[in-house]
């Protein structure tokens, strides 16, 4: 599944379309602790988080994530959109709580094999 297909499954609003939109998501990391994200070795991951800060995007860029989903319908600081544009990182928000978002992504990935 590509990141935009997952966005659809989450009914997420895509704020920035970055690079790698055609690449399949290989793993999903769900965390509010960036230290945890930094120990993930998988490629082409999607990061689900309820933390709305620029550092989320910088962390995602460092580990080579394809995009970031901020859950809980949190309003994002405008700087996040700017940073996402600078880093060519896909950024979206969804209204689901993190737990529900995790389930929705899991179900979507399962259905798509």
């Amino acid at each position: 599944m590509t990141i935009l297909e997952i966005a659809e499954a989450l009914k997420a609003e895509v704020l920035v379309k970055g690079e790698g939109l055609d690449r399949p998501i290989k793993n999903v990391v769900s965390s509010d602790l960036m230290s945890d994200v930094l120990v993930v070795d998988d490629d082409d991951i999607l990061l689900l988080t309820s933390l709305a800060s620029d550092q989320v995007l910088r962390t995602a860029q460092i580990v080579g994530a394809l995009g970031v989903v901020v859950v809980n319908g949190k309003p994002l600081p405008s700087s996040m959109v700017n940073v996402a544009n600078d880093l060519h990182m896909t950024l979206m928000t969804c209204k689901l709580a993190k737990y529900q978002a995790n389930i929705a992504v899991y179900e979507a990935l399962k259905q798509n094999g």
């Binding site: 509010d32 602790l33 230290s35 945890d36 930094l38 120990v39 988080t49 933390l51």
Partner: peptide, 15 residues
């Protein structure tokens, strides 16, 4: 609260 300070930084650098 900013997502850091879990005490894994130096260990991760070493890794």
């Amino acid at each position: 609260s900013l997502g850091f300070g879990a005490g894994m930084g130096l260990a991760n650098v070493k890794r």
